[in-house]
Amino acid sequence: MQALVIVAHGSHLNPDASTPTYDHADTIREAGVFDEVRTAFWKEEPSFREVLRTVESEEVYVVPLFISEGYFTEEVIPRELRLEGWDLEQWDSDGTSATHATLEAADVDKTIHYCGPVGTHDAMSDVIVRRAETVTGDSEAGEGFALAVVGHGTERNENSAKAVHLHADRIAETGRFDEVKALFMDEDPEIDDVTDFFETTDIVVVPLFIADGYHTQEDIPEDMGLTDDYRTGWETPAEVDGHRIWYAGAVGTEGLTADVVIERAADAGADVGDAIETVRHRTRSDANASAGD
């Protein structure tokens, strides 16, 4: 038997923080390739500490629903899961290239395949593009559009900015959008001046965050000038300095993120059958349906 455990931050204060995690778990559960699909949280229950004992399978694929490699993926999660002999060297990563490491956990008799975070997987570039399609309601969105990928910045972790650049560069290389840039909340180039960085009138803004919360629903919309007060909401698109801003909200809420979770597990050796194709197809149908609402 093989299990998938999605580990995420969660929140003591925000009831919606766990929603994308549950949604992606459900999508993967429906694909039917894992005997068990579980979720665990740093701030909610089951905790990282106690999730493995709720799993029956002997092979467990743990995928962090985090944006970048750093404090949580390198220190907190391995420690709380009691991964014996964990050493960052096992990931052999340049900051965005971790795939997986195979370890034992001290409190259960199981093999744990500890994967890199979803945010740095190449497939996350596709999720950002899908997010642009969803927010514009145009499955061909690209020509005539600029794309801004937004990150938190280096305040806490330099790898966080690396992940943003990784995807901005990958998407730029495809030539699909007229312009692509990485922008940040707390370092240059800053999201506050978003319209200064693009020639194109229509700018799609996709924050590389897992869940919607304070940053994506309060800070960024106000900083970009979409609204004076986040509580009154904003238009999509919103007119700012002669540009139209298509603000997408956290990329991690996009249904296709479930595909990245599966790809992480598959890269670590999980037998995922045709789940990647199934989920890519199904989440596209869902995205088109919601774009038409």
Binding site: E45, P46, R53, T54, D107
Partner: peptide, 21 residues
């Protein structure tokens, strides 16, 4: 029960077997 009270069954069972950590 797992969704209402996560991990309570597993920990209860470990305790019954004298193995609660």
């Amino acid at each position: 029960v797992e969704y209402v009270y996560p991990a309570t069954i597993a920990n209860w069972h470990l305790e019954r077997r004298g193995e609660l950590d």
